[in-house]
Design a protein around this nucleic acid. Structure first.
Lengths: 333, 333
DNA sequence: GCGCCGAATCGAAGCGCTTCGATCGGCCTC
DNA sequence: GAGGCCGATCGAAGCGCTTCGATTCGGCGC
């Protein structure tokens, strides 16, 4: 193994000079810098991470708690992970993979052992049992998702309430007077998944404000339950003309079922969904949608963590405003 | 931060004694061990990972290269990751997340800096460009998947050739004389994805051996291309009665299309697939299938890596034998 | 009773890096 | 021309751990 000592000897300078060339924390003459860099390249030197961590008290590693057994949307989970890893690398951090399933103790462990400098937690729910534990972690923690009680913690999330309002507003602007929300399976609401509840609240608030007739239906995946749900929605007698869907798993089945019933989208029924863009464009009908900007949220989470590592900083909640993309699955009434 | 020094003082022993209690590398009297353990608990001591890595020259971290932008099967990717992380933790290792997308240099980097002790690479393809680079990594490397040229590298994978033979054999045993393989999209074969080619080879070999009429069809996802593919399969004039499917993405669409054509499974057509068990059971027709035993493969990969870390060990290829689960989607002819 | 052995423990030397103070010229100022 | 200052560099003290002798001590064989 090539050490800094050998680089120093090769370049004819002291160890500390090499270190300062690497870190840029003191001024070094151009000439010396060049020689050192040449030696580093010539010898193929790579600083030892353990030694660096020990001396500097910084591991340059971020702990990331990922839901691996998630019943949720895997592509979105992957998008988050991928943008977090990429952003972390941009800031010269590596990512240590912790699993939600292994429990909240993991975050403590890696921080206590100085394996990581900070923690990012994905898939945080409304009444997430991990939150109290996370509050006691002695390092910056950023949550992706917003628990009800986020006192003292930093969070990043889509503004689901705004998304709910926005989708209702979109339909209302087109003249729809009677709409329905097709939400997540009952289990999701019972679990108190934060975003589902927030979207629902936004949906209802805007419906009331706009004086629309609005019904709410939670819907389990599966051909039969989708059909049953649709029966509910359509035969409630409200003459529903607009559908807000917040349940990616059933989108495909729903559209198929509509087609089977010879209901045209958007002529007979306008449909707007909250789902990833790639899903919205790959369905039998291209859907007007709001997407979860996973890339962006991940990058923001990393930035928040990095900021807090540089200097301490009060906890902060950042809610990203939804962006709606029209794709023709909604039309004026 | 509590250090080993404070533990030693608290327990009234030397630093090295505490270290030996922790590592068990020298014998320590019961009495002393007890006192030290009490002190550790009382003070809430956690060994500093950087210091440990520096002194012992072992990070107790595994680098895992994950395909994050994979167009493949995300649930399976997740199963791999999840079993690898769990197995690693069982062996007291942590997992550093590296992405396939960031390139093969990442493996080099983390090893050169001693951030990880070994590397596990997922989603290795037939002519994987990463392989030559990986061969030069100065640490144990285990591949999940088998490149054509795996000289000097350790690999773990399902025996796809055996899986192909087994599925053909299953249909042949039931009396089918004319069968078809519905394979992956053309792109997968062009990319030379190892497992697709190996399954195909097994399929063809066993078909020949059993003297069956066998055709091969690659199939892109999407409602239309599935229908077109099915036209190909059925109207080729061979009177096909059995279908081997190695293309998880189209399974659902395929079964729907069969239903649309009023072809009953298994009365009119026997179908056997290679897909995860949960997919096999959640489709409109429960499928007889061979699954990719991701859990097991991940665990084996970790074990191989850990073994090679304990003592060096020649490269080795481990191919797991396929297990077929009957679910009634195939019947005698 | 002496030497020897093994079990239990200690002390100290690193592991490879960061960082703080000190040093050393050269140059500017008055 | 002395004093002061600043940029560039060096030396050494850790960071918290592992590990290799060395040491101590009680018991054992003869």
């Amino acid at each position: 193994m090539i050490t800094i000592k050998e680089v120093a000897r090769h370049a004819g300078v002291s160890i500390s000079t090499v270190s300062y060339v690497l870190s840029g924390k003191r001024s070094i003459s151009e000439e010396t810098k060049r020689r050192v860099e040449q030696s580093i390249a010539a010898l193929g030197y790579h600083p030892n991470a353990g030694a660096r961590a020990l001396a500097s008290n910084r591991s340059r590693v971020l702990g990331l708690v990922v839901p691996l057994h998630s019943d949720q949307n895997l592509p979105v989970v992957m998008q988050f992970v991928s943008s977090i890893v990429a952003s972390a690398r941009d800031h010269d951090y590596d990512v240590l993979l912790l699993t939600k399933e292994a429990g909240p103790g993991e975050a403590h462990r890696v921080i206590a052992r100085s394996m990581a400098d900070a923690i990012i937690v994905m898939d945080v729910e409304s009444a997430d049992p991990r939150v109290p534990e996370l509050r006691t972690v002695d390092a910056p923690v950023v949550l992706l998702g917003m628990p009800d009680d986020h006192e003292g913690l930093s969070c990043v999330d889509l503004d689901f309430a705004a998304a709910g309002r926005r989708m209702v507003g979109h339909l209302a602007d087109l003249g729809h007077r009677s709409i329905a929300l097709i939400g997540s399976p009952p289990a999701v609401y019972e679990r108190g998944t934060s975003y589902a509840a927030r979207l629902l609240a936004g949906f209802q608030r805007e419906s009331t404000r706009r004086d629309l007739t609005a019904t709410v239906h939670s819907c389990a995946p599966g051909y039969d339950s989708v059909a049953a749900c649709l029966d509910d929605v359509l035969h409630a007698g409200h003459g529903i003309t607009g559908l807000v869907v917040h349940n990616e798993a059933v989108l495909g089945q729903l559209l198929l079922e509509l087609r089977r019933r010879s209901l045209d989208v958007p002529a007979d029924l306008s449909v707007i969904a909250l789902c990833p863009d790639d899903v919205a464009v790959s369905l039998p009908v291209r859907l007007t949608s709001i997407s979860v900007p996973a890339q962006e949220l991940g990058a923001i989470a990393v930035e928040m963590v990095v900021t807090r590592l540089a200097q301490d900083h009060a906890p902060e909640v950042r809610l990203l405003q939804p962006r709606l993309t029209e794709r023709g699955s909604t039309s004026a009434r």
